[in-house]
Structures are given as C-alpha cells and as structure tokens.
C-alpha cells in the first residue's frame, strides 16, 4: 500500500497474524457446518503409511480417491476440483473409517476393505475392471490376461493395463495384485517400490 505513511504502526497492528489455534478451531467448525449443510462435496485428509503419505478423498457417496505422494496431492485436489466440485475441504472426519481400515491393512490386521466407494472418477471398461479387482484375494496375484478373462473380454489385455494404471483408488482397489504373465510386477501408479512393498506385505 502506498498511502500507509504515518499510519504504518496502526496498520501493522491491525494486520498482525491471527493466532493459529483460533483459525484451526474456526476451520473445524466450518467442516462441521459444511457437512451438515450438504456443501462438503469432497472431504480429504492425508495419512502416513509404509508406502508414503496417502491422500484420501471422499464424496458423501463414498471413498473417491487414494493418491500417492508421487502423484502430487495438490495436483490431485485440483483435478478433483474440476471433475467433481471445487467445494473441497480438508475435513478428516469423513475419512475416519477409511483411514482406520488402511492402518489396519498396513498393520496386517485387515485383509478386506469394507468401505463405500464412489467410482465416479472412472467410466466404462476401466470402471468395470476396477469393480472386479477386489475379487483377487489378499496375497494372490493375477496376470493382466487373467483379469481380461475375468471381466469377460480376453482380448482386452492392454485395456486392463490402462484400467489398472488409472485406478483412482489404489491399495483399496487392489490393482497391485495384477502382475505380468512372467511374474514380474509390471507398472504401478505409486511406483514399482510401492507395488513390491504391498505384494510383500500380503505375502508374509
């Protein structure tokens, strides 16, 4: 501002930062009111895991997105803003159950996720594949070709690969259990190390 002049001292006092606790309390209240007023189109939080920080996002319908650090969480949220709604808040409460089940999974106390999912980020054949992936049990693997057969389209091996690569709900929808026919892991949205870590976790 060019016209502060002799008012600089008072202006500085007026602009002093607000106590962080106050803002945190107001934010929690905003989360609550937004949820009650049906304004919270997407709620998200982040959790620590053995495969890095995971972003969890959910609509009122269910868990919408699990994202690895390598996907760039800010970018993921921007994309959700375009595809779903910009009414997005960091509001951990809606993700409590998903966070707890993931913790249990990584602690080897859970083999199956029991969560409402919102699959609206994928369409058509990709969504069909993602719907079938949970049929591959904990600790098992299938080849891309076997999954293509599983969904009744044995020739769509490449499309199965794409469906796995674009899975919006990694870990929870177990695309990490789909591997190459020769047994090597193949690609993974969270990187090869994460895929290997999940397969090892489930194998022991």
């Amino acid at each position: 501002m060019s016209d502060l002049g002799e008012n600089a001292d008072v202006a500085a006092l007026l602009s002093a930062p607000v106590n962080a606790e106050t803002l945190a309390r107001l934010h929690r209240k905003l989360e609550q009111v937004a949820e009650n007023d049906d304004l919270l189109d997407v709620a998200y939080t982040t959790i620590d895991s053995p495969v890095g920080t995971l972003l969890l996002a959910a609509t009122p319908k269910g868990l919408l997105r699990v994202a690895y650090d390598s996907e760039d969480h800010d970018l993921v949220l921007d994309t959700l803003g375009h595809k779903i709604s910009p009414r997005i808040l960091r509001a951990p409460k809606r993700l409590d159950r998903a966070a707890r089940e993931l913790d249990e999974y990584f602690a080897k106390r859970r083999r199956v996720f029991d969560l409402q999912l919102d699959l609206s980020l994928s369409k058509g054949f990709r969504q069909l594949v993602q719907r079938h992936l949970p049929e591959i049990g904990y600790g098992q693997t299938r080849s891309y070709r076997q999954v293509a057969e599983l969904v009744g389209n044995p020739k769509a091996v490449r499309a199965v690969g794409t469906a796995c690569a674009t899975n919006p709900l990694p870990v929870v929808v177990p695309c990490h259990r789909v591997v190459r026919t020769d047994g090597t892991p193949g690609g993974y949205v969270g990187g090869l190390a994460a895929k290997t870590a999940l397969l090892n976790l489930e194998a022991t």
């Binding site: 007026l14 803003g81 910009p86 997005i88």
Partner: peptide, 23 residues
C-alpha cells in the same frame, strides 16, 4: 482455473477474521 475451496480458506482465513474483528 478454480482452486479447491480449502486453498481459499488457507489463504484468506486470517484476513477475513481480522476484518470481522475490526468491524
């Protein structure tokens, strides 16, 4: 490009609170 609303809150929460306090 419209940013997630959380970014708007992050960026402007303090200023809006100071404005409300002043008024």
């Amino acid at each position: 490009m419209k940013r997630p609303f959380e970014k708007v809150v992050e960026e402007h929460a303090g200023t809006v609170l100071r404005v409300c306090r002043a008024v």
